[in-house]
Nucleic acid binder design. Structure first.
Lengths: 121, 121
DNA sequence: CTTTTTCTGTAGCATATTCTACACATTCAT
DNA sequence: ATGAATGTGTAGAATATGCTACAGAAAAAG
């Protein structure tokens, strides 16, 4: 089970969005809030130890890349929510979201199309 | 924004499921894993300080009851996931869940009925 | 080659989270 | 009334999380 702390997720989001390798200064530039170089490198060190990123030396600097996929992390978090609130039922989770969140008619039609694509698999 | 730690959520789940007031020994009896009385009471103390539960003295013992509703906590967690993975879009979150989780035809029909009920609100 | 800049690595600190240990208070049976 | 059982409160410890500070190595500029 993937267990990312809030600080680690912030870094992973930047890496996921970019896709490829990034140097710490590049990550810092796209970071959603001001973060000091040393604080960012601390999170990268943890992510490296946990195996969620890899790095490659280029000259004196390192370039980091996400290893743990975004979708796998998403599924892990979704499963945790399903466990907590719906005894592990993904359908229960989705049902509650549809009931709770106000969706536009267009969004509902879009979701129905996606569901039809999955039917019968 | 509701911020419950994993340990706090474990306790809230028991209180939510039961509904009414519970003494620590009652909570302990329904707890999904062995937990010492003192450890449980520590979590209850934190939940009390944060205002997520109330308690009422009966004789020498206290009875605890959930204040923060289950659904509000759920919405808070769902919003966090939508923020992290879909820029805050609840529809994006639901769409990804439908794509990712294998649902039976029955479950999909059930979801469509729920969605129809929400249409046009 | 020397100085400056940039990046890394390590150590240390502050807070949060979770649990344990022990002393004290209240109730109940005798 | 007195001892046992049960419940409470506080203190302390272990780990996790997030950040800062500083020394040293590699690269760049003069």
């Amino acid at each position: 089970m993937i267990n990312l702390t809030p600080g680690e997720i912030e870094v992973m989001r930047v890496l996921w969005e970019h896709g490829g390798e990034m140097s710490p200064p590049e990550i810092e530039a796209r970071f959603p809030r001001p973060i000091k170089n040393a604080a960012l490198r601390f999170q990268l060190k943890i992510l490296l130890e946990k195996g969620h990123v890899t790095r490659r030396r280029v000259g004196k600097a390192y370039f980091y890349k996400a290893v743990t996929p975004r979708q796998r992390t998403f599924k892990s978090m979704a499963r945790r929510m399903a466990d907590i609130f719906f005894g592990g039922s993904a359908a229960g989770l989705i049902a509650e979201l549809i009931k709770t969140e106000k969706l536009s008619d267009d969004e509902i039609r879009e979701l129905e199309n996606i569901a039809k694509g999955n039917t019968g698999q």
